[in-house]
Every structure is written in structure tokens, then in C-alpha cells.
Design a protein around this nucleic acid. Structure first.
Lengths: 109, 109
DNA sequence: ATACTAAGTATATAAAAGTATACTAATGGA
DNA sequence: TCCATTAGTATACTTTTATATACTTAGTAT
């Protein structure tokens, strides 16, 4: 391994895991990767079991990480659309190799 | 994205993130990837800040996932050596692409 | 007037993950 | 005899992460 991330607090791999980790981040990224853009409540409906609080927090985090873009239209009732940014889109093939590894190596305990 | 991991409890990508997630799993994999095999206390010394309890738990988990192999020699004082299994080794290039993504896309908040 | 909508916020609570501390075994060395 | 060593276990505790519930805003439809 070329990069030593053992001791480094700002290690890029740890960072990537922070971005995609957590209970809902990966499912959110999956849905966003399949839609050019999607509204808050539609996202919530597809993420069976998520609460509004959780969805809001996750989206905020992903926006702060520069993975997700938020577009707000000042209408009533409000319309807010979420989409992947460029760096979010670059994460997708990476997640796909995770899927491939998982499919090959999963161990049911 | 070809695989739908939104609703699936046993989704391969979620599984992969479980395996590498947690505070110490990634640093442990990094050290193991750089050593053919390594003893418990040497691993502990290199993982600055980890407690024995935490290291033991993580190693157990990684062994259960089939990522790490444990070889015990019945000597006194005891000697136990840890190494990556084949599926652990297959995880390394994947982590390396995480590093690459992180280096390119990291956002300091 | 009242109810309904979307996209949240605020607050409290529960569950999960991680940490600290003390303890164990068998042997070798001072 | 007493201390050090390795690779842990057992227990209690703290911190972090996730959830449940009630409330908000402004306009539109009944």
C-alpha cells in the first residue's frame, strides 16, 4: 500500500469512509446515482424507515462534504431538489467495486 | 448503478462498509497489508492509542468476516500471529482507490 | 375558517460503539 | 520470592450515532 493512513487524522481513506459511512449515506448515494435530481419527500419515501430528522442531517453532511448539491426553488409549498456533484459521481464506480467485492466475499455469520 | 442496495439488509456494499468501517478496522488492515504477518503486541504498538480490548474485538470481528487469519503458537509467553486472508488481500486495491478519491476530493470543514 | 402540503427545526431519548481499569495464565529471570 | 512477559477476559462507563415526537412557514383547496 502506497499511502500510510495509519496515524494520520486526515487520512484520505478514513475521510472517504466517513463520507460514505453511517446508516443512510450509502442508500442515499445509491438513489441519487439513479436520478438526475430528486426531491426531499420522494427521497424519504424511497428510503424505507428513515425519519425526516435523519434524512435532513445526512443530506446536510453530504452537502458539506461536497458530494451532494441542493437546489431550492422559492415556491409554496417549497420545492428542493438534490443531486450528485462531480465528486459525488466519481464515488459511484468506487461503490460499485465495493459491491463486487461484497458479492464475492460476503460471509454470513 | 447496476446493483440496488437501497432496501436490501444484506447488501454487499453495506457489508463491505461494515467490514472496513469502525474506528480501527482500516488502520489494522493497512498495517496487515504491509506485513506478511504480525504479532498482537506489535500491532498494538503501531496503532497509537488503541486499547487491548478494542484491538481484540476488532481482530475477532475481522476474523469472523474472513478477512484476517489468526495463527496461535503454544509457547510461553504466548505467540499469536495475524495476517490477511485472500479476501482481505483483495480488499487492498479497493482501499487504495478510496485513498485516491479522498486525496482528490477531500473537503476540510 | 380550517385543513393540507413540502421541507424542514427543536428537543428529548434510546441504542450502539468505543474506552478505562483491573484481572488472568504459565514461564523465565533477578 | 517477586516481578516481568504475552495475549488476552470481564466489567463498568462514556461518547457518539440514530430515532421519535411535536412544531413551523406560507400559500392553496374545501
Amino acid at each position: 500500500m502506497k499511502y500510510d493512513f495509519t496515524m494520520d487524522q486526515l487520512c484520505p481513506a478514513t475521510y472517504a469512509f466517513q463520507v460514505i459511512g453511517g446508516k443512510w449515506n450509502l442508500p442515499i448515494l445509491a438513489i441519487l446515482s439513479e436520478n438526475e435530481c430528486i426531491r426531499y419527500n420522494e427521497l424519504k419515501r424511497r428510503l424505507t424507515g428513515i425519519t425526516g430528522t435523519a434524512l435532513t442531517n445526512c443530506l446536510k453532511e453530504l452537502i458539506d462534504y461536497g458530494i451532494v448539491h441542493r437546489e431550492q426553488y422559492n415556491e409554496v409549498p417549497p420545492r428542493v431538489e438534490y443531486s450528485l456533484t462531480q465528486s459525488g459521481k466519481e464515488l459511484v464506480p468506487l461503490i460499485e467495486s465495493m459491491v463486487a467485492w461484497g458479492q464475492k466475499n460476503i460471509v454470513t455469520r
